[in-house]
Design a protein around this nucleic acid. Sequence first.
DNA 1: AGCGTCTCCTGCTTGC
DNA 2: TGCAAGCAGGAGACGC
Length: 283
Amino acid sequence: MPELPEVEIIKNNLSDNLLENTFLSVEIYSEKLRYKIPYNLAESIKNVKVLKVDRIAKYIFVYLNNNKILIIHLGMTGNFLVNHINDEITPIKHTHIKFIMSNSKVIRYIDIRRFGFIKIYDLKEKEFDIFKNKLGVDAISNNFNSKNLINHIKNKKINIKSALLDQKIVGGIGNIYASEALFKAGISPLDCSKDVAKNIKKINNLIKAIKFILRDAIKVGGSTIKNHKNMNGESGYFQYKFNVYNREDLKCNNIKCESSIKKIRQSGRSTFYCENCQEKENG
DNA sequence: AGCGTCTCCTGCTTGC
DNA sequence: TGCAAGCAGGAGACGC
């Protein structure tokens, strides 16, 4: 499910519900996510207060007042839902963790495919530094700029679409927004990364397109393809603004273009693009 | 080293 | 209608 915009929305929801509140109890229903839920999670955060909720790329960081930090990744289908402790709600399938907060909110982590994970680190722990240092720059931060992108892709032979999905190059872009950003920038997903790196105009267009699309998606609540919802259960709207994603064989949205959208596979994942508006570079 | 493929998991859609 | 295959928003482990 979630790419940077969807994670940003969940992060903001989490912040609204967790900030300055204390974990009263934690119930774990199934330990097996992408990584096993830390055995000490419940005891580590019981009666501990949340100081800050942050996001880098697709990761959510929950800073606690005991010098620990929760790191959450939502995988493909991870999500949080919130309700009041007195609300009567029917059991939700694939609920793996339930957090009961001092503000009487109940926060559920739900993840159908279990590709998400939750880790807990001591802020002074070496492991946490190692983790942080592995992260690529966040796609909507100022650190993601032409110099940075060129440096990362100038020697890469992989196609530019796959490069955008590499979280060490830039963090936060997933399969939907990679296709959408390349369309907006007028760059073929088949272009070789190192060739794009040589074309400063393309690089600048690409960075502008990525930031524009991600911010635009955040404004409208992200994209709901199957199951992205905010924590109050509301869908996003960006899927109605897709120009290429999931639009195979439909007419290109560029009114001056008569072509239809193509679907191809790159590195095992689908890519959508317009051959006419995103002409491949020669060579 | 760098790149492509496989894999973890569940559920929905498609085609026979 | 039933069943199997294929695909899905991510990303780490492998193998060539």
